[in-house]
Protein backbone atom coordinates (compact mmCIF):
# COMPACT_ATOMS: atom_id res chain seq x y z
CA UNK A 1 0.00 0.00 0.00
CA UNK A 2 1.33 3.34 -0.94
CA UNK A 3 1.86 6.03 1.60
CA UNK A 4 -0.45 8.45 -0.09
CA UNK A 5 -3.63 6.39 -0.09
CA UNK A 6 -3.87 5.10 3.45
CA UNK A 7 -6.52 2.77 4.72
CA UNK A 8 -8.32 5.79 6.11
CA UNK A 9 -9.42 6.85 2.64
CA UNK A 10 -10.96 3.50 1.89
CA UNK A 11 -12.79 3.51 5.18
CA UNK A 12 -14.06 7.05 4.72
CA UNK A 13 -15.24 6.13 1.23
CA UNK A 14 -16.99 3.10 2.70
CA UNK A 15 -18.65 5.26 5.36
CA UNK A 16 -19.82 7.67 2.68
CA UNK A 17 -21.27 4.85 0.60
CA UNK A 18 -22.96 3.44 3.68
CA UNK A 19 -24.46 6.83 4.49
CA UNK A 20 -25.76 7.13 0.92
CA UNK A 21 -27.29 3.71 1.37
CA UNK A 22 -29.03 4.86 4.52
CA UNK A 23 -30.30 7.89 2.69
CA UNK A 24 -31.62 5.68 -0.07
CA UNK A 25 -33.63 3.58 2.34
CA UNK A 26 -35.12 6.68 3.90
CA UNK A 27 -36.00 8.61 0.78
CA UNK A 28 -36.84 6.20 -2.02
CA UNK A 29 -40.40 4.98 -2.20
CA UNK A 30 -39.76 2.20 -4.66
CA UNK A 31 -39.20 -1.03 -2.76
CA UNK A 32 -36.68 -2.16 -5.37
CA UNK A 33 -34.54 0.94 -5.01
CA UNK A 34 -34.73 0.73 -1.22
CA UNK A 35 -33.47 -2.78 -1.56
CA UNK A 36 -30.66 -1.63 -3.89
CA UNK A 37 -29.65 0.85 -1.21
CA UNK A 38 -29.34 -1.98 1.27
CA UNK A 39 -27.13 -3.82 -1.21
CA UNK A 40 -24.98 -0.72 -1.46
CA UNK A 41 -24.64 -0.73 2.31
CA UNK A 42 -23.48 -4.34 2.25
CA UNK A 43 -20.96 -3.44 -0.44
CA UNK A 44 -19.55 -0.64 1.64
CA UNK A 45 -19.19 -3.06 4.54
CA UNK A 46 -17.25 -5.37 2.24
CA UNK A 47 -14.94 -2.53 1.34
CA UNK A 48 -14.37 -1.96 5.03
CA UNK A 49 -13.59 -5.61 5.58
CA UNK A 50 -11.15 -5.80 2.70
CA UNK A 51 -9.41 -2.57 3.59
CA UNK A 52 -8.92 -3.61 7.21
CA UNK A 53 -7.81 -7.02 5.99
CA UNK A 54 -5.08 -5.42 3.92
CA UNK A 55 -4.04 -3.02 6.67
CA UNK A 56 -3.70 -5.68 9.33
CA UNK A 57 -2.54 -8.44 7.04
CA UNK A 58 -5.42 -10.66 8.08
CA UNK A 59 -7.02 -12.68 5.30
CA UNK A 60 -10.15 -13.23 7.42
CA UNK A 61 -11.45 -9.89 6.24
CA UNK A 62 -11.52 -11.05 2.63
CA UNK A 63 -13.13 -14.33 3.56
CA UNK A 64 -15.74 -12.43 5.52
CA UNK A 65 -16.42 -10.29 2.47
CA UNK A 66 -17.00 -13.41 0.40
CA UNK A 67 -19.45 -14.73 2.98
CA UNK A 68 -21.26 -11.43 2.99
CA UNK A 69 -21.71 -11.82 -0.74
CA UNK A 70 -23.23 -15.25 -0.25
CA UNK A 71 -25.62 -13.86 2.33
CA UNK A 72 -26.48 -10.95 0.09
CA UNK A 73 -27.20 -13.26 -2.81
CA UNK A 74 -29.61 -15.30 -0.69
CA UNK A 75 -31.21 -12.15 0.61
CA UNK A 76 -31.65 -10.79 -2.89
CA UNK A 77 -33.43 -13.91 -4.04
CA UNK A 78 -35.93 -13.89 -1.22
CA UNK A 79 -36.32 -10.13 -1.20
CA UNK A 80 -37.10 -10.00 -4.89
CA UNK A 81 -39.52 -12.89 -4.48
CA UNK A 82 -41.36 -10.91 -1.80
CA UNK A 83 -41.46 -7.81 -3.97
CA UNK A 84 -42.75 -9.81 -6.93
CA UNK A 85 -45.38 -11.47 -4.75
CA UNK A 86 -46.57 -8.08 -3.52
CA UNK A 87 -46.59 -6.73 -7.01
CA UNK A 88 -48.85 -9.59 -8.06
CA UNK A 89 -51.35 -8.57 -5.41
CA UNK A 90 -51.39 -4.83 -5.89
CA UNK A 91 -49.37 -3.95 -8.99
CA UNK A 92 -47.23 -1.35 -7.30
CA UNK A 93 -43.83 -1.25 -5.72
CA UNK A 94 -44.52 1.92 -3.79
CA UNK A 95 -43.93 1.14 -0.17
CA UNK A 96 -45.84 4.21 0.99
CA UNK A 97 -49.03 2.52 -0.16
CA UNK A 98 -48.29 -0.38 2.14
CA UNK A 99 -49.39 1.12 5.40
CA UNK A 100 -52.49 -0.80 6.30
CA UNK A 101 -50.90 -2.15 9.46
CA UNK A 102 -50.28 0.62 11.92
CA UNK A 103 -51.12 2.01 15.35
Amino acid sequence: MSDIVTVDWYLILAAALFAIGVAGVLIRRNALVMFMSIELMLNSVNLTFVAVSKELGLIEGQVAALFVMVVAAAEVTVGLAIIVAIFRLRASANVDELAELKG
Partner: peptide, 17 residues
Amino acid sequence: TSALQTGQVRWYAAGMA
Protein backbone atom coordinates in the same frame (compact mmCIF):
# COMPACT_ATOMS: atom_id res chain seq x y z
CA THR B 1 -46.83 7.56 20.92
CA SER B 2 -48.91 5.24 18.84
CA ALA B 3 -49.40 8.08 16.39
CA LEU B 4 -45.71 7.61 15.66
CA GLN B 5 -46.58 4.12 14.52
CA THR B 6 -47.72 5.28 11.09
CA GLY B 7 -47.32 2.01 9.30
CA GLN B 8 -44.87 3.62 6.87
CA VAL B 9 -41.74 1.53 6.34
CA ARG B 10 -39.64 4.55 5.55
CA TRP B 11 -40.82 6.28 8.65
CA TYR B 12 -39.71 3.30 10.71
CA ALA B 13 -36.40 3.19 8.89
CA ALA B 14 -35.89 6.86 9.68
CA GLY B 15 -36.70 6.15 13.30
CA MET B 16 -34.18 3.36 13.35
CA ALA B 17 -31.52 5.46 11.69
